[in-house]
Amino acid sequence: MADVLTFTYEVSDEDFTRAGEASSDVKKKLKKLGVSPDVIRRVSIALYEGEINMVIHANGGTITILISEESITMILDDKGPGIPDIEKAMTAGYSTAPDNVRNLGFGAGMGLPNMKKNTDSIDIETKIGVGTKVTMVINL
């Protein structure tokens, strides 16, 4: 089996200004690995949207990135409140983000739709009161 590179990040919800640090680091690593600019852009957008979501809705969580020769897998695991209606959450323009988040330029209801648009597959496992695990794959 081919080697798989794994990176793990703890995402904190304490300081919103730091949201995006994990995505930023992944982007730098992919550049160093010589991944194509188009793939880097798609990973960056999907991961950053996911990271912001974790900070806004789920009190942070863990991001795991798996890089193989075939694909890049992004796993975002949180112990937040869960998503009551995934179909609604996937609808462009639907948002439950609070006003303070909107003032920072987020919460337009584009996050999940944009994550779907930029990845080859997205799987959301969620349980109310337990947490949400989002797995996104981009094929290389």
Binding site: T17, A19, G20, S23, S24, R41, G105, F106
Partner: peptide, 17 residues
Amino acid sequence: LTGLCNPQVVRTAEMMD
């Protein structure tokens, strides 16, 4: 071009090149 002024603007710009 933006009227928003916080660090996430720079982060977003980084992600979008």
